[in-house]
Amino acid sequence: MALLEIKDLEVYYGVICALKGISFEVNEGEIVTLIGANGAGKTTTMHSVVGLLPPKNGSVFFDGVDITKQPCHKIVRMGMTQVPEGRHVFQELTVYENLILGGYLVKDQKQIKDDLEKIYTRFPRLAERKYQIAGTLSGGEQQMLAMGRAMMSRPKLLMLDEPSMGLSPLLVDEVFEIIKEFNNDGTTILLVEQNAGKSLAISDRAYVLENGLISLSGTGKELMASDEVKKAYLGG
């Protein structure tokens, strides 16, 4: 059974139709990527799945439960979270406070301590800057913080919206490396990216989103080999 199943999702901004009925699924343990150009509906999809933007029609199932039109905080409680586009760390709070907020739902203090330790070990830069205000971190550090913060709740499904945006090539590699690690540790990943090459390379499966519709789907390798994808997203 799919961990996340989206059926005929239609989303409107006022009268403008941003998603014209898309269906896709993410199975447990997979890395699935949505690629597409600006305005194709990638972020809309992400927001809609996590309950920040209620869909007009269609349904979203998570772990077999219908979560369509549930409020975001309830959906997050069920075990999925998102690293939003533009990172959205709490700029005026410290690194530590950001991470603690990520573990807001966790009641077990020991788990919080262990996970903090894990994140500080994985991202030594964050450990060095524990009590620094997050707004003063570099873009790369903020991305690490956003990813660490999301992992504090130990989600079954982690969604990442353009995690490589605005980062240097070296950091982009690092981000994809981390995503693979999270996945190896058992977290299912739904990724939205404009960096099609890098994301397809680590994906089990992928979908191409075009003007609010899914135009292509297949395994990461298949799509990388596809002429259409090559021409439109991989620069020939």
Binding site: V50, L52, H73, H88, Q91, L105
Partner: peptide, 11 residues
């Protein structure tokens, strides 16, 4: 500071 990001923390 950020209402949507707060919701994403399950708050």
């Amino acid at each position: 500071e950020d209402r949507s990001a707060t919701e994403l923390m399950g708050i």
